[in-house]
Simulated assay, not measured.
Amino acid sequence: MIRVVLADDEVLIRAGVRAILSADPGIEVVGEAGDGAALVALVAEVRPDVALVDIQMPGTDGLAAIPGVRRASPGTAVAVLTTFGKDAYISRALGEGANGFLLKAGDPRELIAGVRAVAEGGAYLSPAVAQRVIGTFRASVDGPGERAARRVRALSAREREVLALLGTGLSNAEIARRLHVVEDTVKTHVSAVFVRLGVRNRVQAAVIAHEAGLRPPP
């Protein structure tokens, strides 16, 4: 069972999101908060699998709350759910360590898919923002893939395999099955990849994998 907490200052929005998620028998909403500070306290108390966070809330907003959520429960994945798909919001959310970015205007099935993806250790972006994120990171590369390729060369052969599979959107469990290793081993490799590449989340790592031209092992 995937345990989720919701953070949104609008009660009706929370009710709608709860209804959508509750339609999936594998997801349980275990708490709600109306601002960022309350969210951090709630996460510290219930240690959910996923925190679904709105951006604009009174007091501590959703983006400012992400580091607090990470400190309160390092095992909790964070997915931003918002009406605002501005580049600045997307970049900041991912930079703070969010695992997913979803739009409220999207298909309800995207919401369930996104929650499941981040709960399983993967990353998820609404299709409407995915290309914008990739474009943003591409703009920061000196030359087509050159910088990314240099960073990838610092990885071991196994870490490059893990990065290539991560770049296809696979979760840690799925990568473990592909490489015939235990999931804890994959988690160790993923952590090492993040440190060596200087990234904070799977989306940033996946962009580097694509820029470097990495291909998953057969």
Score class of each variant (00 low, 15 high):
residue 2 I to A: 07
residue 8 D to Q: 04
residue 9 D to W: 10
residue 12 L to R: 15
residue 12 L to P: 02
residue 13 I to L: 12
residue 14 R to V: 02
residue 27 I to M: 08
residue 27 I to Y: 08
residue 29 V to Y: 06
residue 29 V to Q: 08
residue 30 V to G: 02
residue 31 G to M: 05
residue 33 A to Q: 08
residue 36 G to D: 10
residue 39 L to Y: 05
residue 43 V to F: 04
residue 45 E to Q: 15
residue 52 L to D: 06
residue 57 M to K: 12
residue 57 M to T: 13
residue 58 P to D: 10
residue 63 L to S: 07
residue 74 P to L: 13
residue 74 P to M: 14
residue 77 A to D: 12
residue 79 A to W: 09
residue 80 V to I: 15
residue 81 L to A: 04
residue 81 L to R: 03
residue 82 T to M: 10
residue 83 T to W: 09
residue 83 T to N: 08
residue 93 A to P: 07
residue 97 G to I: 14
residue 98 A to H: 03
residue 100 G to Y: 05
residue 102 L to G: 13
residue 105 A to E: 15
residue 108 P to S: 15
residue 113 A to Q: 13
residue 116 R to D: 07
residue 117 A to K: 14
residue 117 A to I: 01
residue 117 A to N: 06
residue 119 A to E: 04
residue 121 G to Y: 02
residue 121 G to L: 06
residue 125 L to W: 03
residue 134 I to T: 12
residue 135 G to H: 09
residue 136 T to D: 10
residue 140 S to F: 12
residue 146 E to I: 12
residue 148 A to M: 01
residue 149 A to D: 00
residue 150 R to V: 01
residue 151 R to Y: 07
residue 154 A to D: 03
residue 155 L to H: 00
residue 156 S to V: 00
residue 159 E to V: 06
residue 162 V to R: 03
residue 162 V to E: 01
residue 163 L to S: 04
residue 165 L to C: 04
residue 167 G to A: 05
residue 167 G to P: 06
residue 168 T to Q: 13
residue 174 E to L: 01
residue 177 R to C: 00
residue 178 R to V: 09
residue 180 H to N: 13
residue 183 E to Q: 14
residue 184 D to W: 07
residue 185 T to C: 01
residue 187 K to T: 12
residue 187 K to C: 10
residue 195 V to T: 11
residue 208 I to T: 04
residue 208 I to S: 00
residue 209 A to C: 02
residue 215 R to I: 06
residue 216 P to I: 05
residue 216 P to L: 01
residue 217 P to V: 15
